[in-house]
C-alpha cells in the first residue's frame, strides 16, 4: 500500500514538473521561453492539476452519496448545470464581480448545487436509487441544460458564441496565476469539507439507515457533501469548461488500485485526478502540435469507451 502511494505521489510530482517543459516552444532555450513558462505553461499545468483534483473528488463524493459507481458530475448532469450557470453569468453579467470572487465560479457552483438537488429529488421520488433512474434523470437534465445553453448561444453574437463553444469543449488556456489561484481556493474549501467527512463517506457505503444507527447525522452529511462536490465541480467547470469523464475514470482506477475505503481512496483520487488531467492536457497540446486541442476532447475520447465498458461489465 505504501509503495502504491509512493508511486502515485511520484506520478503527480513528475507530471507537475515535466509537463510545463513540454510543448511546441522549447522553454529552456527560446528567448521568450521564460516568459512562456511563467505566464502560460506553469499556470496552465496548475489549473489542469487543480481541475483534475476537483472533478475526480467530486465524482468520488457523488459515488459515495448515491452509492453508485456510475454517479459522476457528468452523468448526473451536475457539470451541465454548472455550465448553464456559468454561461448565464458570462452572457448577462460578465463584468460584475461577486464579492471579489469570480462570479462565473459562483454561478457555476449555484448551477451545480441546483442540479444535484434536482436530480437527487427526482431519483428519490421514484423508488430509491436504481442506476437506471439516476442515470436517466441525469440524461434528461443534461439534455435540457444543453438546449438552454444552445438557446443562449443562438442569441449571442458570433464572437461570443465562438468563445462559449471553445469553453464548452473544456481546456486550460489560461494566462497568469489568477485562474489557478481562484480555482485553488474553491477546491481547497471543497476538499477540507470532504476530508472531514471521510469516515462518513465510508459509513454511507453500508446504507443510510445503518449509518444513521451508527450515529452519522445523515442529512447534515449529505448536505455538506453535496455542497462540497458542487463547489468543486462548479469552479472547475466555470474556469475550464465541462471536462467530461474525469469523475468517472479516476475514482474507478483509484478503487482498483487501493480499494473502496475512503481513507485510502480519497488521497489516491486526489493524486490520480491531478496527474490525469495534466497528462491529458499535455497530450492535447502535443499530439497535433503546433495545433492545440482542448483537453476536454481527450478526456471524452478516453471516457466514452471507458463508460460503455463499465456499463457492460457492471450493470
Amino acid at each position: 500500500m505504501k509503495l502504491k502511494f509512493a508511486i502515485l505521489i511520484l506520478l503527480s510530482l513528475t507530471a507537475l514538473a515535466v509537463f510545463p517543459m513540454i510543448g511546441s516552444t522549447d522553454v529552456l532555450h527560446d528567448p521568450m521561453g521564460r516568459e512562456i513558462l511563467m505566464k502560460l505553461r506553469i499556470p496552465r499545468v496548475l489549473t489542469a492539476f487543480l481541475a483534475g483534483i476537483a472533478l475526480a473528488t467530486s465524482g468520488m463524493i457523488f459515488q459515495a452519496l448515491f452509492r453508485n459507481p456510475l454517479a459522476t458530475p457528468d452523468t448526473l448532469g451536475v457539470s451541465g448545470g454548472a455550465a448553464l450557470g456559468a454561461t448565464i453569468w458570462m452572457r448577462f453579467a460578465a463584468p460584475l464581480l461577486c464579492l471579489g470572487v469570480s462570479g462565473t465560479s459562483v454561478a457555476g457552483f449555484l448551477g451545480a448545487l441546483g442540479t444535484v438537488l434536482l436530480v437527487y429529488g427526482l431519483a428519490r421520488a421514484k423508488s430509491g436509487f436504481s442506476s437506471a433512474t439516476l442515470l436517466l434523470a441525469g440524461v434528461a437534465v443534461n439534455l435540457f441544460f444543453s438546449s438552454l445553453i444552445l438557446l443562449m448561444q443562438y442569441f449571442s453574437d458570433p464572437g461570443e458564441t465562438f468563445r462559449m463553444i471553445r469553453w464548452l469543449m473544456g481546456g486550460f488556456s489560461v494566462v497568469g496565476f489568477t485562474t489557478p489561484i481562484n480555482l485553488a481556493v474553491f477546491t481547497a474549501i471543497g476538499l477540507v469539507i470532504a476530508v472531514l467527512l471521510t469516515r462518513e463517506m465510508n459509513l454511507l457505503l453500508i446504507g443510510e439507515e445503518l449509518a444513521s444507527a451508527r450515529g452519522v447525522n445523515v442529512d447534515r452529511t449529505k448536505i455538506l457533501l453535496f455542497f462540497s462536490a458542487s463547489l468543486m465541480t462548479g469552479a472547475a467547470v466555470a474556469f475550464c469548461g465541462p471536462i467530461a469523464f474525469v469523475g468517472l475514470m479516476v475514482p474507478h482506477i483509484g478503487r482498483q488500485l487501493v480499494g473502496s475505503d475512503h481513507r485510502k481512496l480519497f488521497p489516491a483520487v486526489i493524486l490520480l485526478g491531478g496527474a490525469f488531467l495534466v497528462i491529458c492536457d499535455g497530450l492535447a497540446r502535443t499530439l497535433l502540435a503546433p495545433v492545440e486541442m482542448p483537453a476536454g476532447l481527450i478526456t471524452s475520447l478516453l471516457g466514452g469507451p471507458f463508460f460503455l465498458w463499465l456499463l457492460l461489465r457492471k450493470v
Binding site: L205, R214, S260
Partner: peptide, 19 residues
C-alpha cells in the same frame, strides 16, 4: 446492501460514535 468492505472495517464502523 452490497458493500466492498472487509469484516473488520465494518465492525470498526460501530466505533463511529466514539471517534
Amino acid at each position: 446492501i452490497e458493500f466492498p468492505l472487509a469484516v473488520y472495517d465494518f465492525v470498526m464502523m460501530g466505533r463511529y460514535p466514539y471517534l
